[in-house]
Each structure stands twice: as C-alpha cells, then as structure tokens.
Amino acid sequence: MINFRKLLLFLPILFLAFSCQDDVEDVVNDDDDNQDDNDINIVEMTVDNSGSSAYFVSAINGDEDATTLNEDNSTWDLTVGTRYELTITNASVHPFALRDSENNILLSMNSVDGSFEGDSEVDFQSSGSSFSFTLTQTLADELNNYVCTIHSGMTGSITIN
C-alpha cells in the first residue's frame, strides 16, 4: 500500500517534468527560426558577353533583380549586405573587375590586385569563372562600375541600394 501511495505522489511530478520539456524545446526551436532571419541574402548572376563589345546578365537567381536581363552593359543596382556570386562566361578572355569612379580596381579576376580583395568582410573569392563578394557599406561607398580588364568597351555602371 505504501508503494502505491508513493507512486500516486510521484506521477504528477513526472507529468509536470515531461510537459515542461516540450515548452523548453519550443523555445529552443523558436530561437533557431530567428537565426534564419539573420542569414545573408545571396544573389547568383550569370554574366555573359556579346563578343568583346559588352557584358550582359543572362540569369539572376535570388531575392533581387539587380539588372535587366540580356541588356548589353546594363546598369546594376546592388544592395549593401548582399552576397553576389557571379559566373562569368568566357572569363579567361573577358576577366571581370569592379572599379571606383576613377577606374581604380576594387576587385578583379586577373592578376591585378584590387584594393578590397583582402577585406575579410567582403570575403572576395575568384576562381576560374566564379567571382563572389559581399557588398559591404565601405565597398559600396567606392563602387562605381564593372569592366572587362582587357576590353574597355565592356563596362557598365553600378548603383547602390
């Protein structure tokens, strides 16, 4: 009889312990959901070329329309805080670069070292046909245009959101 009484006293404690565990898990899961809101926005763009006269963007994947598709040397409208991952078609003969208003190289695919290539927040990566960077406010303050470092006619303006 004594064991039965102990069991009756112990059951409500077990019930409360397990029901509180679900609440703790819900709070933890809610925090994980908030972390997703802080993820960086990534925009992928395919940059093609019209011979040696122009670049054009043939595809954009992501949450923003950075430019008009298939328009030669179009103006790009980029957003601070976004990571841009560009695929440059024919990159070996049309190396891509970003410049300031005085045409100084900020980021470049070829052997020219751009002034932002070592900035850890920009996290510039270039390999083969890929060119990726995070647009920081500091980079945005300098950024003015894109260009082929071999064919000067392949250039377009960049505006910042």
Rank of each mutant, 00 (worst) to 15 (best):
N3E: 08
K6Y: 14
L7S: 13
L9Q: 10
L11V: 13
L11T: 09
L14W: 13
L16E: 12
A17F: 14
D23G: 09
V24S: 01
V28G: 03
V28I: 14
N29V: 04
D31K: 15
D32Q: 14
D32P: 04
N34P: 00
D37L: 15
D39L: 14
I40L: 11
E44V: 02
T46Q: 15
V47G: 02
D48P: 05
G51L: 03
S53I: 02
V57N: 03
S58I: 09
A59T: 07
I60K: 06
D63N: 13
E64N: 14
E64Q: 15
T68A: 14
N70D: 14
E71C: 06
N73F: 14
S74A: 15
W76T: 02
L78P: 01
T79F: 15
T82A: 14
Y84H: 10
T87D: 08
I88V: 04
N90Y: 12
S92C: 00
D100Y: 07
S101G: 03
N104C: 02
L106R: 06
L107K: 05
S108N: 05
S108I: 00
N110W: 05
S111E: 07
S111Y: 06
S111C: 01
G118S: 11
D119S: 09
Q125G: 12
S126C: 03
S127R: 03
S129E: 09
F131Y: 00
S132W: 11
S132N: 15
L135T: 10
T138K: 10
L139C: 04
L139S: 01
A140D: 03
E142G: 00
L143D: 04
L143M: 05
Y146I: 00
V147F: 01
I150H: 09
M154S: 04
T155D: 07
G156T: 11
S157K: 13
I160L: 09
I160T: 15
I160F: 11
I160D: 07
